[in-house]
Amino acid sequence: MKKSLKSLLNLTAFELDRMSKFLYILIGITLGANLIGYIMTPMRHVSRLNEYMSTQSATSQQALDYYGTFTFYDAINTLWIAGPIALGVSGLLIYSLFIWYREWMGKNTFAYRLLMLPVPRMQLFFSKLIVIYLGIFSLIATQISSLFIGFQIVSAIVPTEWFADMSALQAIQENFLFYYLLPIDLMYFLMINGIGLVFIVVLFTLILMERSFSVKGIVMGIMYGASALALTLFPLFLTDIFQNQYILYGSETIMIVASMLLVIAVTSLFVSRHLLNKKITI
């Protein structure tokens, strides 16, 4: 038991090391783009107000009446912030494919080495899964720290009389992207990450199907993925099916979806284990 834990940690550290460059780039882009956003967006607002004042020879209050105050919400509701998030999500999604395929497609077929390690092969699966999640959480942590730094920058740029009194937290909560992605509402955060986790587990299973049965595996994978999706979504349509919207409480629907996700995750893990142990081909 202790030995297999050690090898899982070893493998995870190894995978993390292989991902680190890619992750640093994503973190760098996020911080860089955010920083530009924190500076550019309020500066544009301030210069607009200043321009209005000089061309219209208006007072500061008149300019403010015309353009409105600046909030931190305005600063974060831009592509400078949303862009890197989209990039991070799609980057890690692509990396979830890459993390497997590079073992076969790389210059050297490292899959040989990994599959012949004297450890249960599911450890390869788990180490890769953990690393993808470490990537996700690193980006979330980066985003959170960036927002708090950003608030300081924005409030330093915008003169106090033009800056609306809105806390960083309020501004973040108003942004729907952050509401779902950051741990603001614990329930939501758990749900989103739970769905994400099951999604990656299913994705890994599909990859292993393709690696085991090639073209046939792709067909199997599509069917498996579609059934998983149907199984997850069908509780949401129960009220329509029975034409009775009182049949379930909202919380009950969520419970059913959650248990469906659990069933899918466990099934996928068993399927993956079977594929890795018995069907995978070099």
């Binding site: 050297n108 040989y112 012949m116 390690l117 004297p118």
Partner: peptide, 15 residues
């Protein structure tokens, strides 16, 4: 795999 080893015809460590 501690008792039997396979040496393929191409490098299988990381470049």
């Amino acid at each position: 795999y501690n008792k039997i080893v396979f040496i393929p015809d191409a490098s299988i460590s990381l470049p």
